[in-house]
Amino acid sequence: MIDRVALFVTCLADTLFPNAGKATVTVLERLGIEVVFPPDQTCCGQMHGNSGYPAEATALARRFVDVFGGFDAIVTPSGSCAAQVREHFGDLLGGNDRGVPGRTWELSQFLTGVLGLEDVGSTFEGTVAYHPTCHSLRLLRVGDAPLRLLRAVPGVDLRELPDAEECCGFGGTFAVKNADVSTAMLDEKIAAITASGAENVCACDSSCLMHIGGGLRRRGVPVRPIHLAEILAS
């Protein structure tokens, strides 16, 4: 049984969405798990790797392994950052990854897969549409883990999101390099969210939520973007 984890909060949540990080701490501590935050952590290098800067990505991956190498379990509230560690570190580091990829977990995978839990003692009031982010879905293969967690929360009224598995159009630097296509994809996602009738749109990645949330606000759509951890922490 794992009773101590290192939190990799991600550079984005640390800087821009601290509530996702705080919520992750709340959920884990509620379950009696000791949370350690190694302060030397910075960034997993995903943005560099995906944008065509493998040297920078490799340096950040090496740093990540140095910082987290001593922990049995590393938990992060991000599907795409967990995917960067689990799926890409091996190649970037030529195998010198100290087994860190296999010990790094996205929050919903950790709760359901490692701890075997669905009910984590949360309550929440409201209608929720769940958007499965691409990297959690197709790289990490979290499957329905987030949905099982959400279904176990009393008061969550899950609404079906049409074409849920379509990309929201974020894609890191894609969102600015191909801003118009990214926007067209976002428009479809927002139409689907609106059609779901939910008051909240929930995901496992702050990055996609930043894109969706920024689009909702610009369009004056009164739907709240919310990280899965924030619902589970309620």
Partner: peptide, 24 residues
């Protein structure tokens, strides 16, 4: 790049306290 983002999306401002500041 920020302008390209801003053609169709707002951006949350950086909050006064980072996660790590809160943790400390």
């Amino acid at each position: 790049p920020l302008g390209a983002w801003g053609r169709s999306r707002d951006l949350p401002a950086l909050p006064a306290q980072t996660f790590r500041e809160w943790w400390e």
